[in-house]
Amino acid sequence: MKYALKKLLTTFVTLVVVSLCVFLAFNILPGDPAVRMLGLEASPELIEQTREKMGLNDPVLVRYFRWFTAFLHGDFGTSYSYSVPVAGMIISKIPITLTLGLLAFALTILISIPLGIVTAKYENGILDRAITVINQVIMAIPPFFSGILITLVFGMIFKFFTPGGFISYTDDIGGFVKYLIFPSIAIALPKIAMTVRMLRGNLIDEAGKDYARTAYSRGNNTNGVLYRHVLKNAMIPVITFLGMALADMVAGSIVVEQVFSIPGISRILLTSISNRDYPVVEAIIMGIAIIVIGVNFLVDIIYMMIDPRIRIDE
């Protein structure tokens, strides 16, 4: 339990560090948010009044603290461009991007772990060699290009789905998930390739160690050694990688959403970046940061559960 508490504390510290970085990045910018909101023709008195009202005259750390505590309470500020609360703008988009990322993550696990085991089990066999080559190529294809190719082949030629025919989850949840399957394949492909390669390498390394030989000599067959002994150890680095991959896939969905014209977080983020609508950008970035940090915390906890050495060390 001490270990979990310690991790919880570092997680919180990381969150504070990240939020401070994000806040400072958007607050050292030239340009006055009050002027941006009111326009260049506004009178100096009005600007001063607005600055006071927005709390812009306080020291940076006070503003940071106010922003951070408000953020934890679900108040993400007001959009500069639309003058509406940011939370309302993004809350309906989060399920779309999150579903896309999680679908891609599920696909990655479902496909890469069996493939990694098979390629390691039949090391240097035909299947293993073929997959190694295919993996190398897949890793070189950026998700948006595979997305374009998938749209062309499966959307336009074979008509498995209608490109641009996104269905909202409020209308038809089945159609919504169905539309997201092809985009999630585009996001998952390079991660699948990386995970297979990593798991294969780890399994082969672990299988050469002494404990694996001991397990064999105690009368286990190949499958027994593989599933009961080797796999567990080989999975430890893979779990770290998958944690990072999940974060990457949520971020990667920003690009792929554009390819498949999915109205998720991506569109708001990109328009807000070009409009310099910082509260919206800040909120989205912080949202993704919280997901990333949360996943890392979960990874540490899963570690503790599968690797007793960590518990004893503490």
């Binding site: 920003i254 690009v255 990333v292």
Partner: peptide, 15 residues
């Protein structure tokens, strides 16, 4: 490092 680099780059581009 835990932050996806494409997102980090997007933040900095927006700055």
């Amino acid at each position: 490092f835990a932050f996806p680099s494409i997102l980090l780059a997007l933040v900095i581009v927006s700055v």
